[in-house]
Design a protein around this nucleic acid. Structure first.
Lengths: 208, 208
DNA sequence: GTCTATAGAAGGATAGAC
DNA sequence: GTCTATCCTTCTATAGAC
């Protein structure tokens, strides 16, 4: 592949990423992608054959980028508390720089769940879960988090970080009414979310 | 309007609801809707003129149904703690019976934020917020929740309830790997989420 | 490798009979 | 009110020249 090829293929890929993020698979038009890449439609097919293949390439790249961001949860050598603070800081910052990714991925996976299974094919979730459980066995015991509550805890943490982006249209719509800037809210959220989760974990007075 | 009219119009509306929930505005086909309603395409246009108008009718109905479910937050005469427990119970139960609604609404609003502004035109969010603040002034003070943390708290509660449905494809994909049933998870979540939030609120040892 | 031109299919919408 | 037939536009995809 020559240098010119690569430039064109990359321009197409970048244009496609932009259009798919904006319009989704169903709403995207090959013509829009060609226009944005400053080439003609025929070239799209020369490089990627079909819209579907172009989409799959874009989707895999984006999804890989997003899901890899969850990796530190499993391999950082940190206390549970530090890990939670680290996660909210890093993850919300990443999404502030890539605010369209969550809604895109959630929607395309809901529309076609097979896409997610394909992504997870090489990943042993059970193994990760057991690893996590081992890493924080003592802390979870101290916080009185039983084995079957780990999914509840993890999904809560993910929700608090990702949902503002998944519901961005609604959040921004509400925030503009109360003069709250979305990015200010997100900056505050890094600390608020971490404090909130840790407070809940450390409070032994309710439930169970 | 005769009785027969109403039956047909309703059949169309119900079929359209089903198809739009599954495929979204862009992915839905008028032919699919006609097939599901057991009529021909021409009748769709007779009753609703365009795909766009049919979609708007369906969207408004669904969105109204969903957002009205948040109303008890503002007018129930309950303590903050009871209100939180009540909300998670009722809201998650409602979404268990209507699991496709959140992803549909979030996606269509992200794709076209004007839809949300239109829905909120008659609603004074500031007024609701102030009402809520008044109702729970003492409790919020006792929990050390300052005025500008109310959006953080409310979005956290919404996230914990709605996100599992918004990310249903991912959650179900992960859960099937660890032999966890999505509905069992949701049943547990009603209590877990309420306990979690209340524990966080009542713990004064961290932050600020 | 890139372009123009166009095929071919699909989808939204309408005309007109009943 | 409901149907069949069809128009017209849009979109993906390909053929073929350069």
């Amino acid at each position: 592949m020559t240098e010119t090829d690569k430039q064109t293929e990359e321009r197409i890929f970048d244009a496609a990423t932009d259009v798919f993020l904006d319009k989704g698979m169903d709403g995207a038009r090959m013509q829009d992608i060609a226009n944005r890449a400053n080439i003609n439609k025929a070239l799209l097919h020369y490089y990627y054959r079909t819209k579907d293949k172009l989409f799959e390439a874009v989707f895999e790249k984006i999804a890989g980028k997003v899901f890899s961001r969850f990796a530190p949860i499993f391999d950082e050598n940190l206390s549970l508390e530090d890990k939670i603070r680290f996660f909210f800081n890093e993850h919300i910052s990443f999404l502030q720089n890539n605010p369209r990714l969550p809604a895109f991925i959630l929607n395309e996976i809901n529309r076609n769940p097979a896409r997610f299974r394909k992504l997870m094919n090489n990943i042993d979730i059970n193994k990760l879960w057991i690893m996590l459980e081992k890493q924080h066995k003592e802390e979870l015991a101290a916080y009185n988090i039983s084995r079957d509550m780990i999914p509840q805890l993890m999904t809560t943490i993910a929700s608090m970080s990702v949902f503002p982006f998944a519901a961005r249209g609604i959040f921004e719509g509400i925030f503009e009414r109360i003069d709250l800037d979305f990015n200010d809210y997100l900056d505050d959220r890094k600390k608020f979310a971490a404090d909130f989760v840790i407070k809940a974990l450390k409070n032994r007075e309710i439930g169970e």
